[in-house]
């Protein structure tokens, strides 16, 4: 499988990365080189093989459903580019 310029632009939008025409053209070639490389996986017979979900056999750890952390709003917003009264500020979302 290979990607064309339109697909690259669509994927870039899905990934929320602005691309120029020039970027998209360069990326098309690069992505096709990588997709060409991974193509060889189709040679492998995977009939009856389960996809890996966990590399180390382990049971999901559980703990008591109790509050163990919190009251750190100021810490959480401390690194944000724009805040007001412990809220993150973003451009208008709803018209």
């Amino acid at each position: 499988m290979s990607v064309d310029l339109q697909t690259v632009k669509r994927v870039a939008h899905l990934a929320r990365i602005a691309v120029s025409e020039e970027d998209a053209e360069r990326m098309t070639g690069e992505l096709n080189a990588i997709l060409g490389f991974v193509e060889q996986l189709n040679e492998v017979d995977v009939s009856g093989v389960e996809p890996m979900t966990s590399v180390t056999p382990m049971e999901m750890k559980k703990r008591q459903d109790a509050v163990t952390d919190g009251n750190k709003a100021a810490d959480i917003v401390a690194n944000a580019p724009a805040t007001e009264e412990n809220f993150f500020l973003v451009p208008k979302v709803v018209e």
Partner: peptide
């Protein structure tokens, strides 16, 4: 999905 199956085989 294909890659995760191949991963099972590698392991």
């Amino acid at each position: 999905l294909q890659a995760q199956k191949v991963r099972t085989l590698i392991k």
